[in-house]
Design a protein around this nucleic acid. Structure first.
Lengths: 213, 213
DNA sequence: GTCTATACCTCGATAGAC
DNA sequence: GTCTATCGAGGTATAGAC
């Protein structure tokens, strides 16, 4: 075995080691941030939920702010990974519609499978200090760029309606998809059926046919 | 003049008098709740923004919690009023599509015209204590009932797609509309054009035609 | 790696002068 | 109707024992 795999002298830097306790802190923090907000959540509550005492958190994290940053990042990364995986599984010549359908399915899957992280992200992103926003912005931007590419692709292949702006479509659709984590109920039907209905609405709308103006 | 119009001995009860200071407190509270969250906003900040001292707030409100309640309510009422007004202006025999279009226009108008109240509502509703939620629930329910009626109406007239659940349509569409307050930019086009594009997407989708499955 | 104990700060709310 | 002054509670973060 190489001694280079993980040198304990190295600082964790960007990718911290994920001990079980550390992960539990992040998970409980996400859950509490989601349901009570960032400022309203105390580290005593997070520690309590994670089964440790408040002071012990500072062995794993430098500050509450750092926990926030990692929770926010995980909210995006979980979704982005699911989407990229779906897209990679498609044949290279897949239609724009097929690509977007795969992206929607992946987005919804990641969103609902990491609900505490994604909902926490959606709910509190608009409320955090500018410094925290700045640190989180790059990872967000990378993901929205992916959608821009998909939508521009559809536009260039004349599949997207010409009478709506591509920017509005992206913002509207992502916003709509994101909000499903706030009301989706897995007990009222299968995930597959849910995805099918959402995709239908996004692609073809809620009405049976193009009606009169 | 009748002495019954406003007897100063009466407690304000449900509808408080709206002094200028009182309204300013609510407006600044909404703005701060929107951008920093409920718990992160201090009454000292609210007072400062309203041009008074923190202690003075308690002449107008019993608690921070009461301010929250009124901010939340205003977020719904402003939207509901705009929608009800649009619907009332329609002829009685208007089609489901026309009624829904009017509701969408009214919803967007109210949403964006009372942005601090509506955005604050959307952002923090999921994070407030259960007691505050319960007090606010009735006014919310009344508004969603209105949408249920409109959508059921479209369903009964065979205008809504039969392959999507009416509940999913309502939740998805309202969620999508609500989130526009988070990204709508009035400098990038007229409100009328914006409404037209959103309505098109909701009714007829983002793609040019019903494509292959 | 987790604990207890605590320093220091800021919050919501109240009291009473003006 | 607004002010100043202040109370008690509870927050993040730190220090040092184990």
């Amino acid at each position: 075995m190489s001694t280079k795999l993980r040198d304990s002298r190295d600082k964790p830097a960007a990718t911290e080691p994920d001990s079980a306790t550390r992960e539990r802190i992040l998970l409980e923090a996400a859950r509490l941030f989601r349901h009570h907000g960032y400022a309203a959540t105390t580290l005593r509550e997070v520690a309590d939920a994670a089964g440790i005492k408040a002071g012990s958190i500072y062995y794993h994290f430098e500050s509450k702010d750092q926990i926030l940053g990692e929770v926010l990042d995980k909210g995006i990364v979980g979704v982005a990974e699911a989407v990229r995986q779906r897209l990679a599984a498609l044949p290279a010549d897949a239609s724009s519609r097929l690509k977007l359908a795969a992206a929607i399915e992946g987005h919804l899957w990641g969103l609902l499978h990491h609900g505490d992280f994604t909902s926490a992200n959606i709910r509190i992103y608009g409320q955090i200090p500018a410094a925290a926003k700045n640190r989180h912005r790059r990872i967000r931007r990378e993901y929205t760029d992916l959608w821009d590419t998909l939508i521009d692709d559809a536009l260039r292949h004349d599949e997207l309606r010409p009478d709506v702006s591509a920017t509005i479509v992206r913002l509207f659709v992502i916003g709509a998809l994101n909000w499903t984590v706030e009301w989706y109920n897995p007990q009222k039907g299968s995930f597959e059926d849910f995805v099918k209905q959402i995709t239908t609405i996004v692609f073809d709308g809620t009405f049976v046919k193009d009606g009169p103006a």
